[in-house]
Structures are given as structure tokens and as C-alpha cells.
């Protein structure tokens, strides 16, 4: 997760003084990031764009109350996460289904070993993240995650929210978030592995190199 640009704070202060242009700059800086998050949650371009609009309107309305205890982007992402969760709840309510992970649950929680990604990916992480087929498989895997699992994956991996923030957004305990995230990651790996089974395997040396360099987070 990138650190925020140093002038987020000054833009926020300018917005508080009524500078509309400063707010536009903040919008332009974060529009696609917010969209990516919202799309990750909602899987629909139009719904995600609605959330982008709603989020920035909300940000502008509540900006006078923003005291800067967290960074602007953390605050913004909390708002986006809440809007997305509300959106999912509203929609699932319409369909008489709860915002829950019973749907499309892969049910692998009881499988003992933590299965990893194919070694073909681990061997070439730089190439993997630029490979369109792999990225499409990631999208497809996200689609098959349950709403709750997808939500924790997006909040943590994309937004970098803390366990405490995630617990607040999902209205549950920190322990539940940790457990949910663990299973979400495992499910995601499983789904992705299934979609990438046919990729050629890299050499053992490449795997060893990767393991060396990726040891420290």
C-alpha cells in the first residue's frame, strides 16, 4: 500500500476553507483507487462508480469533522468500505439473502495443510503480476469468493485497513476478522490454483530464489 502523498493534509486543510479545486485534486488523486476498492467489493462497474460518487460527497460533507488522527486515505477507505458493505447488505436484503459467506463458500476450512499457490507463480512473481491470464484468473477467483471473504480480502490487501478498522466496518470482533481473513486467503489461493493448473512449472532454482527474497514482509 503506497504512502499518501505528503500534501494530502494541505489539500484537506484547503478543502476545509472551501477550496473546491483542492477537493477536485483529492478526487482526481483517489478516484481510481476508490473505484478499484469498490469494484473489488461489488463486482459491477456501475455500482462501483456510484460508490465513488457517494463516497466523495460524504467525504466533502464530513470533512469539517475530520481531525486528521488517521491519514486522509485511511479515513476515505473506511468510508468506502462502509458504503460497499451497506450496498451489499441492501442488495442481498432485496434478494432475501443475508450478507453472509454461506454462498459460494468453498468449504475448505477443515483441510489441514495450508496449500500454497502454484510454484509457477511463486517462481516468477514479477511476471505473474503482469500476466493478463493470471490477472483474469484472479478476477474470476474473487468473483467466486463469498461476500464476506471478498470484503476482508479487499479491506486488507487493497485498502490496508487494520484488523480493528475491519472489525468495526464488519461489526464483529477482531478475532473473527483474523479467522475470516485466514480462511478467505486460503479459499482465494485454492480458487486461483484451480484456475491456473495448466500453467507451466518454473525451475526449482527460481522457487528457491523467491523463497529467499520473500521471507521478510
Amino acid at each position: 500500500m503506497d504512502a499518501p502523498d505528503p500534501d494530502d493534509h494541505s489539500l484537506v486543510e484547503a478543502c476545509k476553507r472551501g477550496d473546491r479545486r483542492a477537493f477536485q485534486l483529492l478526487f482526481e488523486r483517489y478516484e481510481r483507487k476508490v473505484y478499484a476498492v469498490a469494484y473489488g467489493f461489488l463486482r459491477s462497474q456501475e455500482d462501483a462508480l456510484d460508490v465513488v460518487q457517494e463516497a466523495f460527497i460524504k467525504v466533502h460533507r464530513y470533512l469539517p469533522n475530520f481531525e486528521g488522527q488517521s491519514s486522509f486515505y485511511t479515513w476515505l477507505y473506511r468510508i468506502v468500505a462502509n458504503l460497499c458493505i451497506d450496498h451489499i447488505r441492501r442488495n442481498t436484503r432485496k434478494k432475501d439473502v443475508e450478507f453472509d459467506d454461506k454462498l459460494r463458500h468453498d468449504g475448505d476450512q477443515d483441510s489441514a495443510p495450508a496449500e500454497s499457490l502454484p510454484t509457477s507463480l511463486l517462481g516468477n512473481p514479477g511476471e505473474a503480476v503482469e500476466n493478463k491470464e493470471i490477472l483474469a484468473a484472479v478476477q474470476d477467483s474473487l468473483k467466486y469468493l463469498s461476500d464476506k471473504h471478498r470484503a476482508v480480502i479487499i479491506m486488507r490487501e487493497l485498502q490496508g485497513l487494520s484488523y480493528a478498522d475491519m472489525a468495526k466496518a464488519m461489526n464483529c470482533s477482531k478475532g473473527t476478522i483474523m479467522s475470516r481473513l485466514f480462511h478467505a486467503r486460503r479459499n482465494m489461493q485454492k480458487l486461483l490454483r484451480e484456475r491456473l493448473e495448466n500453467l507451466p512449472e518454473p525451475s526449482d532454482d527460481a522457487v528457491a530464489d523467491l523463497q529467499q527474497e520473500a521471507a521478510v514482509p
Partner: peptide, 8 residues
């Protein structure tokens, strides 16, 4: 890697 892939 999973984090990078989801982000990308």
C-alpha cells in the same frame, strides 16, 4: 504474491 496479484 496473492496480495500483489489482487492489487494489480
Amino acid at each position: 504474491l496473492m496480495r500483489d496479484l489482487v492489487n494489480r
